[in-house]
Design a protein around this nucleic acid. Structure first.
Lengths: 194, 194, 194, 194
DNA sequence: ATCTAATCGAGACGGTACGTCGGGTCTTTTG
DNA sequence: CAAAAGACCCGACGTACCGTCTCGATTAGAT
């Protein structure tokens, strides 16, 4: 059912997939697709989420920085995966033209993941690991925003390094037990901290 | 010429604009549009840039934080402007399906503006106003990424407040002469600092 | 369905009819026309044949000359009818550029009618009314060819008189019981037989 | 100049020739063609007549039947020539949609040739070789009509045999000194005269 | 010998129609 | 009796030429 959608996306790219083609490949009447999904985009969103399967659980240790880094690295790797990244970027793109898709994408994919991170951050604030001054919503927008920015604009690769730098910049500076400087603890290649 | 594109976008929204309609409204043969532009998206990009006109110059005082805040507030206001924001979001969206558009969008709109900010940051580092440890590219991705994130996902409004918080979080913490706390100096409405 | 084609031909002439216009007038999608007909010409051919309806039966008395004259007069009147003649001429013209149309035109319109005449002539030969020496195919080409010639070239009007002369020249001369001279028995206006 | 038209016709067929293509191939501006010719058809007509060159003169012996046969055989051979026949048929076809072309075609190609034959027939009548009863215009329409009929409809090949039969049927029967029977003097293959 | 005017090539322009694709709705047929 | 198959109306696509229209560049004849 959704398999056909995934296959077609892989073969010709999201933009060139049509409902007709999905129906034909799946050996299904067009009507059947329209009966169950409101638009091509939501079919593909379903297929995308379906293909992701039950992802590894978000880590939850007592080190908030490590947890965040692990979680966001997962996100960045999804984005840089040549198999799934372009998909997701395409859905984000299509969502700009289709409010229903935007809502579905946020409700079913983005917000759940984001909420887990928010809760982790909140807990860190409650436990005193994280400065209470930090506006969690702003921090989240920066953390995810940076990653999405690179995903959508292709101006720089979505490396683990970038995630580490991001976390260092946004979070580490506000931890009660800062680990070194504001920049990442991962040694840089070009200008390694002494 | 491009005026018709702008008008149509305003009337029916980017997604429903067709080259046929632009040609008809502009009193122009379709061929003429195809002769000069490779796709609807690039026509609209041209129209968009054209409509922006010669924007106010980027400020360049001796206060890097104030400069950044001014510059990014301009960006955020463009994004939250009901007239131009959806346009730009639509172009970003379309760019996910059209590499040529992505390149054009980055080359002709995003990068020039970003480069100005980069230069300002670099100068701040050279003058010692900004910590040399800060990775400017990461900082830029966070600054813009946060704004674009809210623009594209509509999860929260693109307020001046948000820009201020962003700048405070990403930049102020690394200035040699930090102004108060890590968060913005603009008083919050909901939870004003005493 | 085909009615729209007929109406349009009447209004603006065959050459200016477009498939788009037929579809629009018929309240039908263009695709539907392309689904069922290979070209504008065949649509019009269908409409033409359809409009002719079930023509009067070809006469079949014991007088072969009278039968032929009646039959060919019908043909000539179709050609000289300002309503249907130009149609048919246009189809013949288009057929020179479209082999499929030529085949369809011959198979579905010209040959059936011609075959009836051929059979009548053959019977006349068998009954001895017509000389066995006459090559029926040549005779048919002359009978129809003369009429089509005037239809297509407009060098002279397609009168009953002309048909009578044609039949006289081609057929009467070979009947066992010639009626008078080789020329028609219809009195001429200009040079009446003395 | 006209050469390009001829070449293009040979390569892709009359129907697919466009003025643009002729201009491009001839290395000439489109305007130049429009300046000198009113339509593609007339360009090709010019090219056609030009390519025919100064044809062999029409024979004029004292044997009207032989003269006719020679003349019409020439016509039939033009029609059956795979190089020139389809051209001419295409022009005849186009002429059905373009009155100017029809006039030009008749005035500059068909009528001059036809008039030569008419004069020959008239002289035959005056000299008593041909029955005065024969209506020359009718005879001409039959002679040419038969040939054109086969040329345009492709229902049978345009052989010398056919021309001979035609002349025999239309003319020989009315000569004062008929040569044998009404049918041709050329022996048939299938049913040779005894 | 210079100037003037016509003609040329090139090709952009506003248009019309092409034939194709896909959207979303509908009806018919079949398992 | 649900679903495959697919016809239907529709709108837009990108292309091909149409016939008109500037453009310089190039000649030609008149001055």
């Amino acid at each position: 059912v959704l398999g056909a959608a995934v296959d077609l996306c892989r073969e010709v790219g999201y933009a060139k997939v049509s409902i007709e083609a999905i129906a034909a490949l799946a050996g299904v009447g067009k009507q059947t697709i329209y009966r169950w999904w409101p638009s091509k985009a939501i079919v593909v969103l379903d297929a995308f989420i379906d293909a992701l399967g039950d992802q590894v659980p978000y880590p939850d240790t007592d080190d908030v920085v490590a947890d965040l880094q692990a979680t966001l690295t997962q996100v960045a790797r999804l984005g840089s995966d040549p198999e799934r990244g372009p998909y997701f970027a395409a859905l984000m793109g299509e969502a700009q033209a289709d409010p229903d898709l935007r809502k579905a994408l946020v409700d079913r994919f983005i917000r759940p993941r984001r909420d887990l991170v928010r809760q982790r951050l909140r807990r860190a604030q409650q436990s005193g690991d994280l400065s209470a001054d930090l506006d969690i919503d702003v921090a989240l927008d920066l953390l995810y925003g940076g990653i999405y920015h690179r995903l959508l604009l292709h101006n720089a690769p979505l490396t683990d390094r970038f995630v580490a730098d991001t976390v260092a910049l946004v979070i580490t500076a506000h931890t009660s037990r800062p680990r070194g400087k504001a920049t990442s603890s991962i040694p840089r290649r070009k200008a390694p901290p002494r």
